Amino acid sequence: MHRILELYSGIGGMHCAWKESQLDGEVVLAVDINTVANEVYTHNFPETCLSNRNIQSFTSKEIEKLNVNTVLMSPPCQPFTRNGKYLDVNDPRTDSFTYLIQLLCELNNIEYILMENVKGFECSTVRNLFIDSLKACGFSYQEFLLCPTKVGVPNSRLRYYCIARRSVSEWHFKRKEDIITSLPCDYGLPNMLEEILQKEVPDKYLLNEKMLKRANVLDICYKHSRRSCCFTKSYTHYLDGTGSVYTNSNEDHVEKCYKVANTFDVGSEKFIELFKELKLRFFTPYEVLRLMSFPQNYEFPENITMKQCYRLLGNSVNVKVIGELLKILFD
């Protein structure tokens, strides 16, 4: 039975992925400094010990006393993104992860590691430090760039993953030097969005007139769509590039709206009235949870605001992708 340390635990995406994988083991300790995320985590995993503590305060002896053999983690991604100004190792938000990298060779009980981060991490100095440390500590590893669409999920969320293990003689997986961009199994086409849609959605999710002024930048999805854009923590706050919106109308109707809209000034009263017909709405937190493959029984506590839900989801992971990688890691 594996004993797991879940670092940067957030709302528990890694924990859900472990359960999804059906591997034998338990999360011994989860660690995160985000108090709102911790509240959501505890609501869904009340039996798991959760520490609201800076990772840099842990010593190698403390971690060894936990008697864990597996580390699952998703360190802060902002240092490796455009919005984070690509500060890489010079960003203070990398400090806890670089601390772990330095600590790794002292953690003799750790046999398995899974790490997730944003696309762009693979080009970073921190990535090089991480891989060098894995090699120095006797780990065999494999890097991936994977999107949930590769595992049948109708959502784009391209991310970097690295799986590593010390007991390489028993690893059936054939690793490659290059970054792998697909998994061994063929999962077929992504499912349709209608499988994750809520039946009754309150009007508060409808786009208001101010938002409809910018309907030209929206990514619109339908019940038969097999895709949706990546949801970020700014979803519903900004429109461009933060996630898709939904309409019960069909594609032909939407296409006609855009053709007519081209005859009006963008953002004009007639332009807005035209798009009102489509009843465009945001995906609900429940629907985004499903698109990120969280289980049906996962939920946000009632006191968590809609804005907080989206921010937490934007920082979370796709459960299905990680579940599949865990199966490979422990094969």
Rank of each mutant, 00 (worst) to 15 (best):
M1E: 15
S9N: 12
G13P: 09
G13L: 03
E26L: 05
V27A: 06
L29H: 04
L29Y: 08
A30T: 09
A30C: 08
V31I: 02
D32K: 01
T35V: 13
H43K: 10
E47F: 09
T48V: 14
L50N: 10
L50V: 14
S51G: 05
N52Q: 14
Q56C: 09
Q56R: 12
S57R: 14
F58I: 04
E64S: 07
N69A: 05
T70G: 01
V71C: 09
P75S: 03
P76F: 07
F80W: 03
T81C: 11
T81Y: 05
T81A: 08
N83T: 11
L87R: 01
L87N: 01
L87G: 02
D88R: 00
N90L: 11
D91Y: 07
D91N: 11
D95G: 11
S96N: 03
N108E: 15
N117P: 07
V118T: 05
C123F: 15
R127Y: 10
R127C: 14
R127E: 07
K135H: 10
A136K: 10
G138P: 12
F139Q: 03
F139H: 05
F139R: 10
Y141W: 04
E143H: 04
L145V: 13
L146C: 07
L146V: 14
C147W: 01
G152H: 06
N155R: 00
N155P: 15
R157Y: 05
R159N: 12
Y160M: 07
C162I: 13
A164C: 13
S169V: 08
W171A: 01
I179F: 02
T181G: 14
T181L: 09
D186F: 10
G188P: 00
P190A: 03
N191W: 04
N191Y: 06
L197S: 03
Q198A: 14
V201S: 07
V201M: 08
P202H: 03
K204G: 12
L206F: 10
N208M: 07
E209F: 05
L212H: 03
K213M: 11
A215R: 08
Y222F: 13
K223Y: 02
H224R: 13
R227M: 12
F231N: 01
T232P: 04
T236H: 02
H237Q: 13
H237S: 13
Y238L: 14
Y238M: 12
L239I: 06
T247V: 12
N248F: 13
S249R: 04
N250Y: 00
D252S: 06
V254G: 01
K256H: 09
Y258F: 12
Y258P: 07
K259V: 01
A261D: 00
T263R: 06
G267A: 06
S268V: 04
E269T: 14
E269L: 11
F271V: 06
E277P: 15
E277R: 15
F283Q: 02
P285D: 13
Y286T: 15
E287F: 01
E287I: 00
V288A: 03
L289P: 00
R290P: 00
Y298S: 02
P301F: 08
I304T: 00
M306W: 06
C309N: 14
L313S: 10
L313W: 03
N315Q: 04
S316K: 13
S316W: 02
V317H: 06
V321E: 00
K327A: 09
L329K: 00
L329P: 09
